[in-house]
Design a protein around this nucleic acid. Structure first.
Lengths: 336, 336
DNA sequence: TTGAAAGCGCTAACAC
DNA sequence: GTGTTAGCGCTTTCAA
């Protein structure tokens, strides 16, 4: 006898009929909700397994008002979304959903335009949202707070009552800064990026705490912040050199790369003439000779945690307001 | 009078009632299907607009058996998925869906495990699939062919009857190779990666066609293929040098980076002692001094095209079996 | 041109 | 413990 053919669309009704029970019973066997006889449940489960029955998520969603999708929202600006950070983070998110009934829907959001996210939320296509990046004055955060939908942000938000998961940037930056100062490099210049990112403010704070911890006074002239373009960074490098920096601390990998290129072009040797460290490590720095002292995070872990938390919220469980993840300080050649 | 508040869930029934028409009429006004009076349609449309009514996609999907989602399937292997290529491609896909009713669902697929893709397809969560990468003997391709679901592959497939979109790697590689040979570099070594990727075979063919076009005989000893690890590549570089290569042609950006690092460590200067070119350009090579001669593609465009094609198939339109996209040959310092 | 009614496949009161 | 029934919000015959 032929095994079950690739039945087009076997429904809960078919299963019920085949087994001579009601749809409700089948539903109960699957969901585990409601009371049902052990033997009956097993019969149903066996049949389902054997015939590869899959509940239609549309119907289920319609009936129980759930979508079984979450939204992964990342910056749509081309120079941002291709940072490996987001891919890894996303993989972390997917890893978690793979073990559940949930799937991940993508949304590209822009600094001033979150219309796609709005559409997804208003079309009720998702049960929750993970914001892959958080800005200081984040449109998406504000929007989601106004809606009745669970969401978590990756990276810290200044907004109140927002569930967030982040690396412990502050302590990481504090630690690496004080280590550097402890090594005797007391003229540390900080070169930082756009101040519209919460994380940059956090890193700056970590930097200052680190200096203080090492007993070094903070010198405003050594802070070069708000650099957006490569040209800005290059200017900052010149500035740092002109005020006699012994070590340049870069707020992130992109800046550090620009700094290193500039130094190489100018014939300034690292660590010979100048030390360099970065508050964020990535493959952008991997190839550099010498290897760069930097803070190492695990983006995938962030994705994991963010997703786990979101699913908990959706399930109605309580969660921490803020989760801080660990880091590693990699001391390399560039500050030797 | 208060403007309409953020009504929780305004449904087609609410609209119908408010307007004193039937749900059918509202449905027709929205879809454009069926006959309806101009004036009636306009009234409905205006009301919908004013009250920000959004049809529930679950209900719509249930009724018309569509999911209004497509699947974006990418490799789940950590060393692969974070290639900027996939992010950019994905952005291209999203760009297209943003202008439609469709959204994008992510699936991570592995070389030997496509269970997540299967789940998404069997749970009927999507109307079609875009495979971000194609392997020679691709599990996902085989699986999807057996299912009755539209899909397109990015990258070429050897399987028959598969809709595919790809860059014109063969002609690109042929062109750059013959240009190099035409410059007088006749001892060209090719260093290539895993042969389980269709694209690598295509590139090899392009390389050989380019040599032939330039009247250079193909020398098997100059082909270093199937290199998986950095160590493999380094060995290949040694091999290439030992057979007297004047120019190393790298099959992709990753290999090229490894080659460049190795050469730098060995004190071999480019282009002084040896020329280097790459069949694929990316930011991995951007920072290199000298700049590397390479083929430039536009991943985002691939995403655009793949998605457009998939949506056409879903809509029942005819599409080309294979779409080949353009390229640019960047001649830089490294082969000067 | 419009409407009534029957589903799409599933869940959840509420009976039995 | 199991079944009946009434939805979830939308589309689509079929009549009017």
């Amino acid at each position: 006898m032929m095994n079950d053919t690739e039945n087009k669309n076997i429904t809960i009704g078919d299963v019920a009929e085949a087994l001579g029970v009601s749809k409700t019973t089948v539903s109960r066997a699957i969901s585990g909700k409601g009371r049902i006889g052990d033997e009956t449940r097993q019969r149903v489960l066996d049949y389902i397994e054997a015939n590869n029955y899959r509940p239609n998520p549309m119907a289920k969603g319609l009936a129980d008002q759930r979508k079984y999708n979450i939204c992964w929202a990342i910056p749509g600006d081309s120079n941002v979304y291709d940072l490996p950070f987001f891919q890894r983070c996303m993989a972390g998110v997917c890893e978690v959903t793979m073990a559940t009934d949930y799937d991940v829907l993508i949304s590209l959001v822009y600094e001033k335009n979150i219309s796609h996210l709005k559409r997804i939320v208003e079309n009720k296509k998702v049960d929750g949202v993970i914001l892959g990046r958080t800005l200081v004055d984040d449109l998406a955060v504000k929007y989601l707070k106004g809606k009745d939908i669970p969401f978590v942000t990756i990276g810290s938000s200044n907004e109140k009552n927002v569930i967030q998961v982040d690396n412990d940037h502050e302590n990481a930056c504090k630690e690496i800064t004080s280590i550097l100062a402890g090594k005797g490099y007391r003229k540390l210049a900080l070169i930082g990026g756009s101040s519209s990112h919460v994380v940059n403010a956090t890193r700056q704070r970590g930097f200052e705490l680190g200096l203080r911890a090492a007993g070094v006074d903070i010198n405003e002239d050594m802070l070069f912040l708000g650099n957006e373009t490569t040209a800005d960074v290059e200017r900052a490098v010149d500035g740092a050199l002109s005020v006699g920096a012994e070590c340049i601390v870069c707020m992130d990998d992109c800046i550090c790369r620009d700094v290193l290129l500039k130094l190489r072009r100018d014939g300034i040797s690292v660590p010979g003439d100048l030390k360099v460290a970065s508050f964020y490590n990535s493959e952008l720095l991997d190839d550099n000779q010498p290897q760069i002292t930097a803070i190492q995070y695990d983006p995938k872990e962030i994705g994991n945690v963010a997703c786990t938390i979101l699913l908990k919220i959706i399930a109605g469980e309580e969660v921490e307001q803020k989760s801080l993840l660990g880091y590693e300080v990699l001391l390399k050649e560039s500050t030797r």
